[in-house]
Structures are given as C-alpha cells and as structure tokens.
Amino acid sequence: MSQQALHSGGAPTQRSARNGGASQFLILQLRPEDAAAEEEFAAFLARGGLAAEEVRRVRLDEAPIPALSLDDFAGIIVGGGPGCVSDDPASKNPLEARIEADIMGLMPEILSRDMPFLGCCYGMGILGAALGAPVGKGRYGEPIGGVACEVTDAGASDPLLHDVPKAFRALVGHKEAVEDLPEGAVHLVASGPCPFQMIRAGNNVYATQFHPEARGENFANRIEIYRDRGYFAPEDAGALTKAVLAEDIVAPERILHNFVTRFR
C-alpha cells in the first residue's frame, strides 16, 4: 500500500467514502458459539442502524469465505472471537487458524482499494498484522470490563468519531493487542491500559480494540459463554457480570452508527 494512501494525519475525505452503488454491508463473524454469534449479530444491526436486508452475514465458523466480489459491498464489518493472531501457528486451534487465514486473505485487497472496513476487537489484531505491526499478549491485554478511553487530536477530526465525547468509556476484554502503531496509520483513540484503542489506515480502513457494538447486557452474555476460555477466572464471572451491567456504555456505538451512515 502506498504512503499516499496510508497518510499520517488529517481527516478522511468524503471523495473516497463510497464504493460505487453497493448498498449491502458484509458482516463476517468468527464466533463458533451460536448464542454468542446471534447476540453479536443482533447488536451490530441494532447499534449500527442496519436492517436485515442491508447485510450479508457470513459465519466463518460454519464455512470458509464464499466466492464474492468486494464491489458488491458498501463496507465490511468484522466481529470478535476467541482466536488470537499472535498464537503460535503450530498450536492454533485448526478452526481458528482457518478463520484467521480467510480474513487475512482479504486484507491486501481491502487495503489496496481503501475499502470501508471496521474490525472490532479481533479486527484490530488482523489490521495490525496486515500492516506489519507487532501484535502480542505481553503488554496491552485487558481484562473484561469497562475502560476509560480518550479521543486523540487526530481522532477529533475523524468522521467516525463525530459526536463521540473526547473522553468516554468502552467495553473491552482481550488477550492480545497491537503493540506499536503501524507505519503510516492514524492513531484515533487511546486508553491508559492499552494505547491503541482505535486506528485508521488510509481513509476508510478502521479497527477498534474495544467493542463498539456492545452494551453491558451483551458483555454479561459473553461472560457466561466464555467463562472457560481463559479471559478470567471462572469464579470471577459473577463479579464481572455485575460490573459490566453497572457500566453506562453509549458512546462507542456511535462509531458503528457513523461507519454505517458514512458508507451506506
């Protein structure tokens, strides 16, 4: 990808914000648990302001990415999942390895054409890895819960952060994180525990480490589903559920809504 496309600052222009006459969004889901996948999909529709007929949903746990043309889509949204980009390839769960390979296989075209893309949580690792940044578990992983985030100076002029407060809280829970800003990417949102909470490549390719679709009730469901996946001690599930339900999380969903509105 050229340095002209991967500029280091400034707000994206509206000129590159459309993908022809495409109207559907492609939602790629990675979660193999039916309850988690259904809850996440419903959250994407509700918080993004999307109607069912505006999306094509692909659950990558069920089958590889089908043959498709990116010309048919206004944008791509990638959900979260239990996989980690930084896991040793030799020990990766085969399903998670195949899902990762499928998504990574799309990234060169997404980046080269500056395709509207929003990666949520797992999508940060995918975008970071695609851009050559280190992704690992040693520095910036965050336990499940709310975190205080702050919009950077560059983020303040980004259209996806329109009407998002300078300081806001978001829900997180991740083992790995991008450890350095990818070359040429724009740093949009930071937090104390994890500096790279939101970044942009080019004009239209975004990733968030937090979950822009999630409210406290969504995380309460995920705590129950993922209680044995190593994100927390199982005996802490009750306290974590109480904590996330007490969070008043509203600002992050504006980012998802802005993404849909801008590229619809």
Results as ranks from 00 to 15, higher is better:
Ala43Ser: 14
Cys84Val: 04
Asp102Val: 02
Asn204Met: 10
Cys120Trp: 02
Ala177Thr: 14
Pro159Gly: 03
Ala51Glu: 15
Arg113Leu: 13
Glu183Met: 02
Arg229Asn: 11
Gly123Phe: 14
Leu188Gly: 02
Gln29Asn: 14
Cys121Thr: 12
Tyr231Ile: 13
Pro12Cys: 13
Glu224Leu: 10
Asp153His: 01
Ala243Cys: 03
Val250Gln: 03
Ala246Thr: 06
Asp236Pro: 09
Phe44Asn: 02
Leu256Phe: 07
Pro252Cys: 05
Asp180Pro: 00
Ser91Gln: 14
Asp236Trp: 04
Gly230Lys: 04
Leu118Gly: 11
Arg227Ser: 08
Pro12Phe: 15
Phe210Val: 13
Arg254Glu: 04
Asp248Asn: 08
Ile225Phe: 01
Pro12Gly: 08
Asn258Trp: 14
Gly49Ile: 13
Ala129Leu: 08
Phe210Ser: 12
Ile255Glu: 00
Val244Ser: 01
Val172Lys: 05
Val205Thr: 10
Met124Leu: 12
Gly125Thr: 13
Ala17Gly: 15
Val58Asp: 07
Val250Trp: 07
Pro182Val: 09
Glu33Phe: 06
Gly230Ser: 06
Phe210Glu: 14
Arg227Val: 14
Ile77Asn: 06
Val178Asp: 08
Phe232Ala: 07
Ala251Leu: 02
Glu62Arg: 13
Ala11Gln: 05
Ala37Asn: 14
Gly105Arg: 10
Gly125Arg: 06
Pro165Glu: 04
Gly10Arg: 01
Asp88Leu: 00
Ala190Gly: 08
Leu118Phe: 11
His211Asn: 07
Ala46Arg: 04
Phe263Ile: 04
Gly125Val: 11
Pro252Asp: 04
Gly216Asp: 10
Asp102Glu: 15
Asp180Cys: 08
Glu54Ile: 00
Met104Pro: 09
Thr208Gln: 02
Phe219Glu: 03
Gly81Leu: 10
Ala239Lys: 06
Met107Leu: 12
Phe41Asp: 01
Ala201Gly: 08
Leu26Asn: 04
Arg139Cys: 06
Leu256Trp: 00
Asp71Cys: 00
Val55Ile: 12
Leu30Ile: 15
Ile76Asp: 06
Met115Pro: 01
Asn93Ile: 13
Ala154Thr: 07
Val147Gly: 02
Ala239Leu: 07
Cys120Asp: 10
Gln24Pro: 07
Arg31Phe: 00
Lys166Trp: 06
Met198Ala: 06
Ala148Trp: 05
Gly216Asn: 08
Arg200Gly: 05
Phe117Tyr: 15
Ala251Ser: 06
Gln209Arg: 12
Ala185Cys: 09
Leu50Ala: 04
Asp163Tyr: 01
Gly48Pro: 15
Asp228Tyr: 05
Glu183Arg: 06
Ile103His: 12
Val55Glu: 05
Phe117Ile: 11
Leu131Met: 11
Leu171Pro: 11
Glu217Val: 02
Leu160Gln: 03
Cys149Tyr: 02
Val189Gly: 04
Ala101Asp: 14
Pro94Ser: 09
Glu150Val: 03
Gly173Met: 09
Ala90Cys: 00
Gly155Asn: 05
Ala207Asn: 09
Ala185Ile: 10
Asp71Val: 01
